[in-house]
């Protein structure tokens, strides 16, 4: 065991420059990887929160409304309303349809604006009947929206999804960009480790040859190399873990959470998960290239 540790230490010292390079690449790529993971967790969180609330509102015509599929000066007839309801319920993308009468809408209006001067500005007759539609998958809203806007007696279709879509697109892009970059960098880190170990094994090929000759086990021969790359990998994991945790603490915990309260934010459990994933990737990235690089020297 002492021999193994001594060999590991001398290997690390001999390749100090390469070891530092491995640690730096590892730290940067794992940090990016963690950032990508956290971004995607945040996006999921935001999506989950908003999708619960997102519904499509189908407003029906009244006498004073124009535009849409309204006939000027006429409200939607009962027959039209039933037809709209039937059409919405028949759509396979629709999970649930609620009907909100203008009276109910007026009550809601009164409740929401009860301390506001605009309370007296409306009467129940000026409110619109509407259908609130919940979708099975909120991302597939377009079919329902276009079908509903084409029905007789529908004045307007509002959907929140189209409002959020640009934001989600942007966040998705960010997430894939960070993950893509981190994968490239992780690849570079893996190749760097393979190269370092290959060189280390080459400089010690005499010793390895003798070890094999006198019957040292493969694990014994491999162990110094494995420990060498594991040490470099673990330092990389440590540095990137601290970076990600510190980034979370200063950017989100101390800043964003207080200044943007309307959004749900990731918390420490998400950060812990991300760091564990980074550690797993970091360790795999240390071990696998080492095994591949030393295979040639261990063939019996």
């Amino acid at each position: 065991m002492r021999h193994t540790l001594r060999e590991t230490w001398s290997g690390l010292r001999r390749n100090l420059a390469m070891t530092v390079a491995v640690v730096v690449t590892m730290a940067v790529s794992l940090s990016l990887f963690g950032l990508g993971l956290l971004t995607s967790m945040e996006v999921d969180l935001v999506k989950g929160r908003w999708y619960d609330k997102i519904e499509i509102s189908v407003f029906l015509c009244i006498k004073t409304t124009t535009g849409g599929m309204c006939e000027d000066g006429k409200g939607a007839t009962d027959a039209q309303r039933d037809a709209i309801q039937a059409a919405l319920q028949g759509n396979p993308e629709v999970a649930q349809v609620f009907y909100e009468s203008k009276e109910a809408a007026f009550e809601e209006f009164q409740r929401v604006f009860k301390d506001s001067p605009i309370l007296g500005s409306r009467t129940a007759d000026e409110m619109q009947d509407s259908f609130r539609v919940k979708l099975i998958n909120p991302e597939n809203y377009q079919g329902v929206v276009s079908e509903a806007s084409g029905l007789q007696g529908v004045q307007n279709v509002q959907d929140l999804q189209s409002l959020f879509e640009p934001l989600f697109k942007w966040l998705n892009g960010l997430q894939w960009a960070t993950i893509g970059m981190s994968v490239l960098l992780l690849l570079a880190a893996g190749l760097q480790i393979a190269n370092t170990i290959r060189m280390a094994a080459f400089t010690r090929r005499r010793e390895i040859g003798i070890m094999r000759l006198v019957g040292a086990s493969n694990l014994y021969i491999l162990l110094p190399f494995l420990l060498e790359s594991l040490v470099a990998g673990l330092i990389g994991v440590l540095v990137s873990g601290i970076t990600v945790a510190a980034g979370y603490l200063f950017i989100i915990e101390r800043n964003a959470k207080t200044s943007i309260r309307t959004l749900p934010w990731i918390d420490w459990t998400h950060v812990t998960t991300a760091i564990l994933a980074m550690a797993a990737v970091g360790i795999a990235l240390a071990i696998i290239p080492t095994l591949l690089a030393t295979r040639k020297y261990l063939r019996i």
């Binding site: 094999r212 000759l213 019957g215 086990s217 019996i300």
Partner: peptide, 8 residues
């Protein structure tokens, strides 16, 4: 994996 034992 028994080759090392042989070589001893």
């Amino acid at each position: 994996w028994k080759v090392p034992a042989l070589r001893r």
